[in-house]
């Protein structure tokens, strides 16, 4: 076992904000934390990293209690933070030094990641006229670019365990892709990533195992494919040339949505879906599309996050 989180609990007075969370990461990849705002994702992450004291539970990394002072951990915090008045290079070199990377090596790595994340121009601004350009400070960057600098800080020490709290929130599609490419690269380099996100498509793209938190409790946990399979194929997407509202009503199928692309219906399983398809065929309805699929992570999340 590489990363084992067991029975993680945090209380503020009588209120249990994280309640007995447990999960394991046996192999490299991405583990996802999902949850509504205030579900306890960030508190769990802070406890895992030892930044917040835990009332119960244990976090181990390769059999030893996880201590970021001893284990190199990359961390992108949910609350992004940089020194606004200091130059980007100065603060990244400082962060690298705190992680045990020498200043010279740090500069090399900063240049590499700055190029990858397309922020090199902020480290070495071009001169305008005779004036010698000054290195940029964090306060001069847009939020998205500041996020890139913080992502660089998380990766600067080339850590084996990387924890990303909402890494893509607030990014435009172009920069999201930049981040995703780097996350993919880290997965291919056999890194262990723990990620929290609201963006379900991102989780579905990268994560095999998930935990859905709700009010501090794990309401669903396990392998994402297995979870989906356990729900069965309960969604039917159907598009026909004729009006089929009568047939839908006759079968008592709930309509999730009706769009120009057809109906999104809920079925109890393959049997009910088959009976509905037979009715369409029997009534000479021209079927353009009939698709059965498992529930999306979004649907599962919404269902689990409902009170």
């Amino acid at each position: 076992m590489s990363l084992v989180v067991s029975n993680l609990t945090k209380r503020y007075g009588d209120k249990e904000v994280v309640s007995h969370i447990s999960f394991e990461m046996n192999k490299p990849g991405v583990y996802a934390f999902l949850g509504t705002n205030g579900a306890g994702k960030t508190t769990s992450i802070r406890m895992m990293l030892g930044m917040l004291s835990k009332d119960e539970g244990e976090v181990t990394w390769k059999g030893e209690p996880l201590d970021p002072l001893r284990t190199d951990v990359g961390y992108l915090a949910e609350e992004r933070g940089l020194y606004p008045k200091y130059t980007l290079m100065d603060q990244l070199v400082y962060f690298a030094k705190l992680k045990g990377v020498g200043a010279q090596e740090a500069r090399k790595r900063i240049n590499y990641w700055a190029e990858r994340l397309e922020v090199l121009e902020y480290f070495y601004p071009k001169s305008e006229g005779k004036k010698r350009p000054k290195p940029m400070k964090a306060e001069q960057l847009s939020k998205g670019n500041q996020q890139k600098i913080q992502f660089m800080a998380a990766l600067i020490s080339d850590p084996e365990l990387i924890i990303l709290d909402e890494p893509l929130s607030g990014l435009d599609p172009v920069n999201s892709d930049l981040f995703k490419n780097i996350i993919r690269e880290q997965i291919s380099r056999e890194k262990y990533l723990v990620m929290s996100s609201h963006q379900m498509e991102v989780i579905e793209e990268f994560c095999e195992d998930i935990t859905i938190l709700h009010h501090g409790k794990a309401v669903l946990q396990g392998n994402l494919n297995d979870i989906k399979k356990s729900y069965g194929r309960v969604n039917v997407m159907v598009k026909c040339e004729q009006d089929i509202s009568g047939i839908i009503a006759a079968h008592g199928l709930p309509i999730v949505s009706e769009t120009p692309d057809g109906y999104h219906l809920k079925v109890t399983g393959d049997e009910q879906a088959g009976a509905f398809l037979k009715s369409l065929v029997a009534q000479d309805i021209t079927v353009i599309r009939f698709e059965m699929r498992e529930p999306s992570l979004h649907e599962i999340f919404v269902e689990k996050a409902k009170d």
Partner: peptide, 17 residues
């Protein structure tokens, strides 16, 4: 206060106590 208000302290705390 500056380290706290700029939220950089959260990043620092994984490297130093």
């Amino acid at each position: 206060i500056q380290e706290k208000s700029s939220k950089v302290v959260e990043y620092l705390l994984i490297s130093v106590k």
